[in-house]
Deep mutational scan, measured.
Amino acid sequence: RGITCLDHENEKVNMYCVSDDQLICALCKLVGRHRDHQVASLNDR
């Protein structure tokens, strides 16, 4: 089922925000508060 995003409840987390040490979803990176932050794919970890 996967872990859902805290900010976007219908989205699954699939990225890690290095700047905030937090799991995020694609919407967080595209339009959310993490858009200018350094992120890594969970597949890279």
Rank of each mutant, 00 (worst) to 15 (best):
E11W: 05
N14E: 14
Q38K: 12
V31W: 03
R35I: 15
C5F: 00
I24K: 08
L42D: 10
C17K: 11
G32M: 00
V31S: 13
M15D: 11
V31C: 09
V18N: 08
D7M: 05
D21A: 09
L42N: 12
D7P: 01
D44E: 11
V39W: 05
S41C: 09
R33G: 12
R1W: 02
V31E: 15
S41I: 02
L6G: 12
R33S: 08
R45L: 05
L42T: 08
E9R: 11
Y16G: 12
L27T: 07
I3T: 13
D36T: 06
G2W: 03
S19C: 08
T4C: 06
C5E: 04
H8I: 00
M15Q: 15
N10H: 10
R45D: 09
T4Q: 04
H37S: 02
R35D: 05
V18F: 08
C5N: 02
K12H: 08
K29H: 10
L27G: 10
E9F: 14
C28Y: 00
R35H: 02
K29I: 10
H37G: 04
A40D: 12
H8F: 00
C28V: 00
G2P: 05
V39K: 02
L6A: 15
H34L: 00
K12S: 14
Q38T: 06
L42V: 11
M15L: 11
I3F: 12
S19R: 10
L6P: 15
S41W: 02
N10S: 07
C28A: 00
R33W: 03
V18W: 06
I3C: 08
V13E: 05
V13T: 06
C5M: 02
G32T: 03
A40Y: 06
S41E: 13
D44Q: 05
C25P: 03
G32L: 01
G32C: 01
S41L: 07
A40R: 12
A26I: 01
C5T: 02
V39D: 04
R33L: 10
Q38Y: 07
V31Q: 15
N14D: 07
R35P: 06
Q38N: 08
A26K: 10
S19E: 13
H34N: 02
H37V: 03
N14P: 03
L30P: 07
M15V: 04
L6N: 05
L30N: 13
I3Y: 13
V18T: 15
E9C: 12
G32F: 00
E9V: 04
V13A: 08
L30E: 14
R1L: 06
D7T: 05
H37I: 00
V31P: 12
Q22S: 12
E11K: 03
V18M: 13
R33V: 09
L42W: 06
C5H: 01
C17F: 14
H8L: 01
I24M: 08
E11Q: 08
L27E: 15
H37T: 04
D7Y: 08
T4F: 11
N10P: 03
N43M: 05
C17W: 00
